[in-house]
Design a protein around this nucleic acid. Sequence first.
DNA 1: CACTATACGGAGCAGCGCTCCGCTTATGCA
DNA 2: TGCATAAGCGGAGCGCTGCTCCGTATAGTG
Lengths: 200, 200
Amino acid sequence: MPEVDAAVTPPPARKRADARRNQQALLDAAAAVFTTHGVDAPVRVIAARAGVGMGTIYRHFPTRADLVVAVYRHQVEALAAAAPRFLADTTTPSAALAQWMDQFVDFLVTKHGLAGALRSEDSGFQALHAYFLDRLVPACASLLDAAVGAGQIRPDIDALSLMHAAGNLCIGVEPGGDTSYNAHRMVALLIAGLRQLPSA
Amino acid sequence: MPEVDAAVTPPPARKRADARRNQQALLDAAAAVFTTHGVDAPVRVIAARAGVGMGTIYRHFPTRADLVVAVYRHQVEALAAAAPRFLADTTTPSAALAQWMDQFVDFLVTKHGLAGALRSEDSGFQALHAYFLDRLVPACASLLDAAVGAGQIRPDIDALSLMHAAGNLCIGVEPGGDTSYNAHRMVALLIAGLRQLPSA
DNA sequence: CACTATACGGAGCAGCGCTCCGCTTATGCA
DNA sequence: TGCATAAGCGGAGCGCTGCTCCGTATAGTG
């Protein structure tokens, strides 16, 4: 059955060279524009920066979410992969949870408007929502379960809600923000609240 | 000095009858449209519902925030006024804070998209932000200070940040939402976290 | 009743997301 | 190397927004 290998790496209908080039150009352009103008930047701007037409951007990334996911995929995967490591390297599961959440907050806060987009009901961001949840909720759940198992935090909360809350707490926060509001501290407070065991 | 009364109720350049009528019609229309389509509803829709033209809506309410504030002013004032009552009627200051916050969450959650709008950096919502902060932060601060004074919660958080966080936790929540996420619970968790005294 | 300050209406402009289709070009084959 | 053709490209254009501007209508006044 040599097809096994072929199935794993099916010469994926290798695209034309210019198509691949444009796709990469779009990713680079989007990454740049997202950091300066946020993930809500006009599509035209991204296309212009990549030096392609409107049609091209929509062919490669049918919805805005597809583009956002493609740009941040690496970082999201890394965050998901970091969860078990945190669990192993940290003294207590609840500390691991807190640290991982801090990483999550860092990620969101440095991405101009991403947290808001994640929250948006706007169709076209659906896929973004789905991808983030799919990758990060299980990672969060593993930490949460460990902490619950160790009796360190109350069991009556699910990972989805926790991620949801943490994400919300990051909305509108800018790295260089001059307000007193601090997303890290708020998420830490939330986790502190989780330590209040219901019976205690 | 009979002018004192005149200063309190200065016959405020009494407007034309049709102007007053239209203003009221706009308020009614906006209230209705906001509840069905959210505070981001197209201006044209509100104008049409009130039976007036585009120009009229912008003359009475130059920015969208002005309209939103006008529609919800009563409820916001009531919320602000309720704070001292909660403090008097509740056994402990921190319980009063929790209950008042619950009221705040109720208010936001039942107002389709208001929490999101409050968070928006969008110019034109600035006034909304300012008004809410101006009315509610002092109310929250009075409860917070009382609780801190009673040694029930940690002192290293300001009312503005707390309101900010609670508001964020309500973003995107719909009253009949079928998700597991519950804004009330999350805000309660946050306050529970506040009970963790820093020294303890 | 006439006159004027006040208010009204909606056409129109600019910016956005997204689609659609005629044109261009890379690629495999002879 | 040259050609046929599928694959890909570009941007004009549509529909929907927020918001402005100015010619028109009318409420209030003497």
